[in-house]
Simulated scan of single mutants.
Amino acid sequence: MRIVPRLLPALFAAVLPFAAFAVGSDDTQPPAPTETTTKCDKGLIWDEKTKACVAPQESRLDDDTRFGAVRELAYAGRYDEAMTVLSAMTEGDSDRVLTYRGFILRKSGHVEDGIAAYEAALAKNPGNILTHSYYGQLLVEMNELDAARAHLAAIRNHGGTGTWAELALARAIDTGLTYTF
């Protein structure tokens, strides 16, 4: 197939956003449904090791497994269950936990509590670019675009240029559309 040179910019603009969001950490793509949301009863999550639905407090589970379930449940709009799983994580109030607590609170309508969680995460780790992105997206939803731009600048200042965190927030500022994962 031969691409006409004058069409390259259009092709590049159409493909680049999807390619950029497909690269990087597990936060770049919506979580794929697993047995946690397709098979397990409410309040249980899938344990790949035992091939069974278990309570999120199950001691054999690691926090990465729990965190994957948190993302999946939050993406499915099951915020109460996601918060329960998040509360079972053993790493305490790490910036990762606080960031996702803020996200869940924000998406479930508890905006002020979400802001407090984001600010606590940034107090622990001012360089957490994912926190800056989610917090900035909340500010976009609140039509606080200058404050959102400050978070975008913080992402860039902390080495996040070209990451999902930067691109998602820049897109939100430009379009008003935010992410649900």
Rank of each mutant, 00 (worst) to 15 (best):
E48S: 14
T84Y: 01
Q57M: 07
D62L: 08
Y75I: 01
V70H: 08
K107F: 14
T180I: 07
F103M: 03
H158A: 15
E166A: 08
E112T: 12
A10Q: 11
G159L: 05
P31H: 02
K107M: 15
E58T: 13
G24S: 06
E58A: 14
E119P: 04
A120K: 15
T175R: 10
I104P: 06
R66H: 05
R66F: 06
F12D: 11
A150C: 00
L86P: 04
I3Q: 03
Q29A: 05
R101Q: 11
R6T: 10
T50P: 02
Y118F: 15
V85K: 11
E91K: 14
E35V: 00
L8K: 14
G114I: 02
R66S: 07
S133H: 10
Y79D: 13
E166Y: 07
F67L: 13
M1A: 13
A170P: 00
R149F: 09
D47A: 11
F67Q: 08
G160V: 05
D146C: 03
N143S: 14
L105Y: 13
L145D: 02
A74M: 13
L122K: 07
E48K: 08
E72R: 12
K39S: 15
L122Q: 05
P17T: 11
L16R: 02
R96M: 09
E144I: 01
L16Q: 05
E58G: 00
S87D: 14
L130I: 10
G176Y: 13
F21H: 12
Y135T: 10
V15K: 00
A88K: 09
R66Y: 06
V54Y: 09
L167Q: 12
G114P: 04
F67M: 14
A170M: 04
P30Q: 05
G102K: 06
K51A: 13
D47R: 07
Q57E: 15
G43F: 06
E81T: 03
A19I: 15
H158S: 15
F67N: 07
A13I: 02
I115Y: 14
Y75K: 05
Y135E: 10
R6Y: 01
A117T: 01
K39G: 08
I3K: 03
I155A: 03
Y135G: 07
F181I: 04
V111P: 00
